[in-house]
Design a protein around this nucleic acid. Sequence first.
DNA 1: GCTGTATTCTATAGTTCTTTGGAATATTGG
DNA 2: CCAATATTCCAAAGAACTATAGAATACAGC
Lengths: 227, 227
Amino acid sequence: MAEFREEPIYRQLARIGKTLASPVRLRLLDVLDQGERTVEQLSEAADVPLKNTSAQLQQLRAAHLVTSRKDGTRVYYRLADERVSRFLDELQDFAGERLADLREAVSEHLGDPAVLEPVTAGELAARLADPESGVVIVDVRSAADHARGHVPGAVSVPLAELRDRLDELPRDAEIVAYCGGPYCAVSPEAVRLLRERGFHARPLDGGLARWRRTGNRLQTGPRLSAP
Amino acid sequence: MAEFREEPIYRQLARIGKTLASPVRLRLLDVLDQGERTVEQLSEAADVPLKNTSAQLQQLRAAHLVTSRKDGTRVYYRLADERVSRFLDELQDFAGERLADLREAVSEHLGDPAVLEPVTAGELAARLADPESGVVIVDVRSAADHARGHVPGAVSVPLAELRDRLDELPRDAEIVAYCGGPYCAVSPEAVRLLRERGFHARPLDGGLARWRRTGNRLQTGPRLSAP
DNA sequence: GCTGTATTCTATAGTTCTTTGGAATATTGG
DNA sequence: CCAATATTCCAAAGAACTATAGAATACAGC
């Protein structure tokens, strides 16, 4: 191994890089960016075996990117602080700008951004503040996710139920659909379905995670029916 | 390997992390942040065998963090653009805030920041703009480095010569010494030497790299003697 | 074209990281 | 205290990365 003078310093720096070098860990961070989760919830959300999830969480904790608390038999993890969330955002932005392969993978997975025309969190916040705007926000994640925290006023319509609950949605107003993180495919899918049926729908850019990151509040508690 | 749906996206994201996961690569990026360099110069500056340096540069290029041009038999590398430089800065800031071990390694290597009282680039720029401030800037890197680009008006006094050229420096004005990157130990050493001899000296925070990053110009060409 | 120099490519051994099975720990509820 | 559940620790196999030796390429100058 090379041994230049500043090596100890750069080795420390590299710890952050190393921690961000695994798809699984990045995925876990994105899930945690939506709020506190148990190991099992994380394991399920990331579709990674539980033991493996736990092992990766240890590494994230060793790098001080997440913290955990124990409540009864469960361990709850969360991002260490807001700074981590902001840094993740910067990383994703930086990577997206730099790697054509990433943009391609995103397009492939979510659909062409130019077609979907995502609404930014700032834009949505402004429209929420204006009672005239008449925008309807739809949370297409699971009802459980919605209950844990959602965009203020958002209606919970899990993607699986969307097809059967179209009559709850307005045909004249614009609908903004969102799901969890920036790479979640559920809201783009919902938008495509809605547009096929003649609704005006757009996804929320970056999902709930970016909504939080940009300093917006969440509302908790169930709100299962349309206003 | 885990295979959740968004895995291809996160795998791309992880490429950036992976690239930043090696002390050697981070070191090379910091050297390049001071300006264009040949493979050999990089190998020397980072004290890493040439072949190894070349191999790491390939990886940096694959991640689009650096670009290269060929001139004759030499290959010159540089950061792909300003964005990379800014991201590096954010990474270092983020890591420094998060990892106590990093702060400790920095203190160990450079000395206690509370004692050194580094001058920020912005502060220095402001004082340069004010002709009354009477600050003297000393570039303690090699004369070759100085010739490649330095803070406007900076005098070149390589650390090795400093002891013998103290009479060129003012005893009443404040001296700001700088070297290459944020973790370069040369300027803190120069500051300690100067203080021992009764001069008022402080290091430039982040060195020449951060000076550049924060949008300040460089001056090129030799300026080997004090004004 | 030939020679010398700078750099990269190819192959490989050594090291580190990830995954996973089995055991261990901690906590709740009976 | 015992059983059940959630999570972590430990260890070993497998995968990925790093360092380096030797060969190959590209170019400048003669």
